[in-house]
């Protein structure tokens, strides 16, 4: 053991994360897989590595990526949010209705959609932190309730009639860059700052690592747990609004099963379902890996059914690899 005076850590110490993100990401199988698939696809399918296709890919990924940011926060606390798909549908429908039937301008309509998502998240959060329901149950209930409310409100019929300017959110471009891609960047940066530089993010890691230590350290546990679900609901709402804008309508059936893809992205990205571990960058890589596989499969003419099998295999592989690397890493550390 060193005396602690030597400057062995020097200036190279990474200051941007409480859990040494860079080390975690470099161990991610997902990052390597993403690069390999990218390279292979660009050779095999000439249309893959074109600006058009890549921006298209970014736009396709945007809904899942934005939602994955919120779910990452929840999973780091050791929770889960199964309701994001339903909540996205609810937000999309309500947002479009606000614009179509109540004449709200698109900005307010989108904010309305976010508010709906945040409200659903608030209910999730209170059920978990105050009522004491397990996160799985609280959000499973919300999955059903939110979907039911959408179907009741719309009579299971898609809603249309948002002003044309609403399309900007999901279909617009700024120069060559699609707006949804910019939204990914913006939301990911926000999520990263929240996780690494705010109390909420710090407490999310601690709550996921050891909730009792957090409580005894004076952390306001309920408030921060609730906040995490509110953010997850809000990001789900944003995802729903982007989707609504892309298809120019509020679809009551949108997002069925979407929560599983989002959770898959987060887990492939290295987050632990037991809490305490996870990064935004990892989750983004996870989301893109899933999207690239689907996109590339289309380019190669591989059907959806096979894509599903492939994604399942990747979940297994990514988590196995992560555990394997971690064990090796820990042995080196303690050895």
């Amino acid at each position: 053991m060193s005396s602690g005076t030597e400057a062995e850590t020097g200036g190279r110490q990474r200051l941007w994360s409480p859990v040494r993100v860079s080390g975690a990401v470099s161990r991610l199988a997902a990052a390597g897989a993403l690069i390999v698939i990218f390279v292979v696809l660009s050779f095999v399918a000439p249309s893959f590595l074109t600006a058009d296709n890549l921006f298209n890919l970014g736009s396709q990924t945007s809904v899942k990526a934005v939602m994955a940011v919120g779910v990452t926060l929840v999973i780091i606390t050791g929770g889960i949010d199964l309701s994001v798909g339903s909540v996205a549908a609810l937000s999309g429908v309500v947002g479009v209705l606000l614009m179509a039937e109540h004449g709200l301008n698109p900005l307010l309509g989108v904010l309305g959609g976010l508010a709906v998502g945040a409200t659903a998240g608030l209910v999730n959060g209170l059920l978990v932190s105050r009522v004491g329901l397990p996160p799985f149950i609280a959000t499973l209930g919300m999955l059903s309730v939110a979907r039911g409310v959408v179907l009741i409100t719309t009579g299971a019929v898609a809603v249309f009639g948002a002003p044309d300017s609403f399309r900007v959110l999901g279909q617009g471009v700024l120069g060559p860059v699609p707006v949804p891609v910019l939204l990914i960047v913006f939301v990911a940066l926000a999520g990263h700052v929240i996780l690494t530089r705010t109390r909420l993010g710090r407490y999310a890691y601690v709550l996921g690592s050891n909730p009792e230590a957090a409580r005894l350290s004076g952390v306001a546990v309920s408030r921060h747990i609730t906040a995490v679900y509110v953010l997850s609901g809000m990001f789900a709402g944003l995802g729903g609004m982007i989707a609504a804008s892309r298809i120019n309508s509020g679809q009551p059936n949108f997002g069925e099963g979407l929560e599983l893809d989002v959770i898959a992205a987060v887990v492939i990205g290295g987050a632990s379902l037991f809490g305490g571990r996870g990064t935004i960058l990892g989750s983004l890589i996870g989301a893109f890996l899933v999207a690239v596989i689907r996109n590339g499969a289309v380019q190669l003419g591989i059907g959806t059914f096979y894509q599903n099998v492939l994604i399942g295999l990747i979940i297994w592989l990514a988590v196995w690899w992560d555990r394997y690397q971690r064990r090796k890493f820990n042995n080196e550390e303690t050895g």
Binding site: P18, V193, T196, R197, R199, R202, Y205, A213, G276
Partner: peptide, 30 residues
């Protein structure tokens, strides 16, 4: 182990948990 520490997190994170060093609304990592 069971209620005093967040074991998988760093020494620095655990030490500052009770009172985070803040700067401009963000955690001051330095």
């Amino acid at each position: 182990k069971s209620d005093g520490l967040a074991l998988q997190l760093g020494v620095d994170v655990n030490i500052t948990l009770g009172r985070l060093p803040m700067r401009g609304g963000l955690i001051d990592l330095r």
